[in-house]
Design a protein around this nucleic acid. Sequence first.
DNA 1: GCCGTGAATCGAAGCGCTTCGATCATCGCC
DNA 2: GGCGATGATCGAAGCGCTTCGATTCACGGC
Lengths: 331, 331
Amino acid sequence: MVKITDVARHAGVSPSTVSYVLSGKRSISAGTRERVLASIAELGYRPHAGARALASSRSNVLALVIPLRSGIHVPVVMQIAVAAVTAARRHDHDVLLLTQEEGVEGLRRVADSALVDALIVMDVQMRDPRLPMLRELDRPSVLIGFPADADDLTCIDLDFRAAGEACAERLAGLGHRSIALIGSPPEVYARQTGYAQRVAEGFRAAVRRHGLTGEVYPCEATAEAARALVGRLLAERPGLTGVVVHNEPVMEPVVRAFGAAGRRVPDELSVVAICPEDLAEHADPPLTSVAVPADEVGRRSVELLMAKLGGERVPAATLLPPRLTARASDR
Amino acid sequence: MVKITDVARHAGVSPSTVSYVLSGKRSISAGTRERVLASIAELGYRPHAGARALASSRSNVLALVIPLRSGIHVPVVMQIAVAAVTAARRHDHDVLLLTQEEGVEGLRRVADSALVDALIVMDVQMRDPRLPMLRELDRPSVLIGFPADADDLTCIDLDFRAAGEACAERLAGLGHRSIALIGSPPEVYARQTGYAQRVAEGFRAAVRRHGLTGEVYPCEATAEAARALVGRLLAERPGLTGVVVHNEPVMEPVVRAFGAAGRRVPDELSVVAICPEDLAEHADPPLTSVAVPADEVGRRSVELLMAKLGGERVPAATLLPPRLTARASDR
DNA sequence: GCCGTGAATCGAAGCGCTTCGATCATCGCC
DNA sequence: GGCGATGATCGAAGCGCTTCGATTCACGGC
C-alpha cells in the first residue's frame, strides 16, 4: 500500500504538504502542486479512508435508510437511492445502505461510531419513532417525507397535497363533475404515511371547491384488486367520468379494466396519474400525470446535507411543487 | 464522544483489556468482562469506526455494486440488496452502495482506499470490463452472475440454464408439444447478459430432447409489447399450448391477452414463469413458476465473502438449483 | 520448595492521516 | 532600509483504536 509519506518522499516535500495539496486548505505553489499531483498519479496513491476519518473526524459517508414496507413502490425507492448515490459522489461522498429494520438503534450506531457524517431517512411516518433520535444526534439529517411534527427537522418531498389538488383541478377544468381517487393500499393509510393522506386531502379540497362529486378509494397494489375496484366503481358510480390514480402497479390494469367495460380512455373516461414520469410516458395511452420526482428528491436530499455539513442554514421544509404534464389519457 | 480510555478508566482496567473484551481475541476473566461490558453500556460507548479501521486494517464494510441498466427487474435488485444488507449486519458488517456508473475506477477507489473489505458485484456480463480489476484487487469479491471466463472468480446465481430446462420439461411432462419462451427484452440479449441466454439455452435443450416445437421470443418489458407479441404468437403459432415467461412486467399482460383472445389460462393455455416467488403467488391465476431466489442470492453472496475474509476457501461457482412450484396456471 | 505453564492483564508502539504552530523567504511600503 | 504582511513549507502532535510483547500470579508436578 502506498501512503502519504511515500508520495511526499517521491515529490520531495513533507507529508503535510501533500495533505494540503489534496485538501486545498492552504495555499501551495503551482510548481509544488504539479509535482505532488504527478507523484500521486505515478504511485497510484489513495488516502486511507479510515486514517482520514480518524484524523479529520469526517468519514465522507452518508447513511441512507430505505423502507422495507409493503405498499410502497420499489422502483421509486431505487430511483431515489441511485440519485442520492450519484449526487453524493459528485460531492466526494459515499453512501451506506441501511434498512428500516435496523430501526432507531441502527441510526445511533452509525452516527455514534462516526461511520457516517450525516443521514437521509426515507419513508418517514406521521409519528415516526426515529424522530427523537434524529433530533438529539449531533449529525445532520434529512427526512424524505413530512412527519406530523417536523419543526426543527429538515424535510423534503413532493408536495403531495398540491399534487392531489392539481389532479382534481385538471379534471374539473376539463368539465368533469363526478370523479374518484384510486389511492394507495389500505395499509398505507392505516399506518399514517403522510403522502397518501395528503394526496387525499388535496383531492378532497379541490372537489369541494369545485362542487364536484368525488371519493377516495384505497386499492391494493395488484391487477386483481384493480379490476375488482373498477367493477365496484362501474356499479356504484355510473356517472363517473374522471379518475385520479396514485398507485403505480394499478394504473395499467385500471385503464384496461375500464376499457374492457366499454369505458375507453380518454374518450369515455379521463385518467390522471401521480407516478414517475417514465411510467406515465410509456403507458398505453400515455397518461396525463403529475410526476413523482424521485431523482430530484434523492439529489436534493444530498445537497441539503452537504449544505448542512458545510455549516449553512437550510430551509426546514422543501416541498417540491407538482408539475402536471398533459398526455393522451384525458379530455 | 466517549472513547475506549473512558471505558477503561470507568471499569478500572487498561484500554487494551477493553479492546480484548470487545474482540474476544484474548481470554478475559468473567468478572472483568462483566465490569467492562457494564461500563460500555453505562457510558454508551461505540468504537470509532475510522480508528478501528486504521488500527485493524478492517473496515467491516462491504461494497455492493448495483446495476442501472434497462431491462432488469428493479424489485429483484432491491431484494438482493436488502438481503445482502441484512446478512451483512448479522456478521457485523455494513454495506456501501455503488452504482454501475462508477465503473472499474469506482471499484479500485473503494478497495484501494480501504473503505471496504470486500465487494459484491451484481449483473455481471459475459465479458465484463470489471473482471480484470477484480482479479488483481487484493480484496475478495463475489459476482452475482456468471461471466464467460469465470475461472478463479467466485460467482453465484440461480442456475438459469436448468431453470429454462425445468420449465420446458414441465410443459413437456404435461403433454404439450408446441411451446414458446417469452424472454427478456432484446437489448438484454444484445449486451450478452448471461442469464437471458442461459434460460434460452436450457429451454432449447429440453425442446430438442423431447422433440417439441419451441421458439424463443424476446419481449420488451411493457404491457403493450406483451399484447403485440401475443397477437403475433396467435397468428404464427396456432397450435401453441404452452408458454414459459421470463420477464416479470409482462407476465400478467400475457395471461390477460391470451385470455382476451379466448385462450384461457390454464384451460386452453399453460403458463410457467421464472420470477420471484411472491409475484407468482399473487398473480391471477397463481402461476406455476421457478423462483428467482433473490433473497438467497443476496444472503449467500455475503456469506461467501465472510468465508473468504475469514481465510476459508470457497467454491468458485455456486449455481442455485431451480425449484419449480406447481400452481394454477398449467395443466 | 522450585520451576514451568497458562491465564489475565498492562503498557507502548503504531496504523496513516490532518492540522496547528512555527519558520523562512519574499515583497510592498513608508 | 527596516518592518509587518503574506505566501509556502515543514515538523510534530494527536485522532482512537488494535496488537504485540512483557509482566504478574496461581497452580500442579516432581
